[in-house]
Simulated scan of single mutants.
Amino acid sequence: MNKRRSIPNQIHLKNVLLRDRSTGVKDGINWRKSEAFNDSPGQLQEAAHKNWSQYFHRRAGGKGGDWKVILQRGKSYTSGFMKGVGLYSKIIPVPLRNTASAVVCACNRAIDLQSVLKKLSILPLKEIVVVLHNASDEMFTIARNYKNTVVVHFPEAVDPDVERSLGAKLTSANTLLFVDGEQAVDANILARFIWECESRVDIALNDISTRLGLFYQRAGIERFHEFLNRSLNRKDLKANSLSSLPFALSRHALDTMGISNLAVPAKAHAMAILGGLRIGIGGAVKSSSHYERSASNEKWRRAAGDHIEAWREAMTAQGSRLNFADSTRNRSVLGEWER
């Protein structure tokens, strides 16, 4: 960008941020004076999120734009709001029109779950569904200590993909954020997944492709993901899929794919493409949930089976050639036996 042109842009943004903060201070003062005022941290967070969303959509235009700028503006407004209230609670603001929830499938490490929930607790989430299996009392205590958590427990280990599907059935939110219970991700990054799903796409994927290198250098499982996308005419998605956490889904996406199909991510991914859903990128996180290069034969066979299910679904919908024309064979000579 031209340096002279960027300076007025920076000045304009600075003025916008100052205006947002000033409005936040006024709204904070008004909220403190209202009957709705409550000095608990949870109520303060909820009020700050709600007032920022109303301001952004009703008075600031509510238009999409660069996420970094929207996040800056939200932080400026909520900082002013808390100054007006005279109290402080850490939050990451996302100007939502609708509701959002998160689904967490936890391992058996309490410290990991606590780190994950700590990040999620500062986002504007209606609820956090925590799916546990064979959990200790400490895991239960941690899960229940956070606001708006819904705890589900299975006495024995359940496949994580199945757990996510079951967790999704327990919430009616418009946007669902799925995160790894073993890996805490910066809330600023997770916020963008929610925003993209709220404003632009039906599915916001984790972008792992930039870290995979050339195709021939990848593990077999990683090739499955990219080949599935290419075979369904979505080469722009590269190797990104619903097999890599975190990701976010809209309610429309869940209804189109069917919640139960989340138990087989490759199949759900294929159904999303076949269903014409808007699929994009929510952010880039080095996901521990993604298959490792040293994946065992068992994991490889499972991934292969999942993708076979995905292609079977696609071929049922589009035919055995997936709408790719056969330009090398003159099948018309077969007459009625052409197919």
Rank of each mutant, 00 (worst) to 15 (best):
G24Y: 10
S288M: 13
D161T: 11
A157G: 06
R32K: 15
H153K: 06
R302W: 14
G80I: 08
K119G: 00
K90V: 11
K118Q: 14
L212G: 01
E138K: 14
K33Q: 11
R301W: 13
A219T: 09
T141L: 14
R329I: 12
G42L: 14
A272R: 01
R164E: 03
V130I: 12
M271H: 05
S101N: 07
V179C: 02
Q318D: 13
L228H: 01
L18T: 06
I122V: 13
P124C: 06
I7L: 15
G65F: 03
T78G: 00
R278W: 03
D137M: 12
V85H: 01
K3L: 12
W52T: 04
K118G: 07
N297A: 10
G275M: 10
A191D: 07
E196G: 00
E156A: 14
V285M: 05
Q318I: 08
G258K: 01
P246K: 05
V104F: 03
H12W: 10
F215G: 00
D326T: 09
A157K: 15
N229G: 04
E196M: 15
R234M: 08
A304C: 10
F154L: 04
R321S: 14
L120S: 04
W195Q: 04
A204Q: 01
C105P: 02
S101I: 03
E336N: 12
T171C: 00
E222Y: 10
A100R: 05
A187D: 09
N30M: 02
Q183R: 08
M257V: 15
P160Y: 06
A135T: 07
E309R: 11
K299G: 01
S231R: 12
D236M: 06
R302L: 13
F37P: 01
Y216L: 09
D236F: 07
V285L: 04
N30H: 13
I221P: 06
P41V: 10
A325W: 08
G42C: 04
W31Y: 14
K14R: 13
S244W: 07
W337M: 12
R192A: 02
S231P: 00
A266I: 05
R211H: 06
I7C: 05
R21N: 07
P95V: 03
Q72M: 14
I111V: 15
S79Q: 12
E182F: 06
V150W: 03
L249T: 10
S199C: 03
S34D: 03
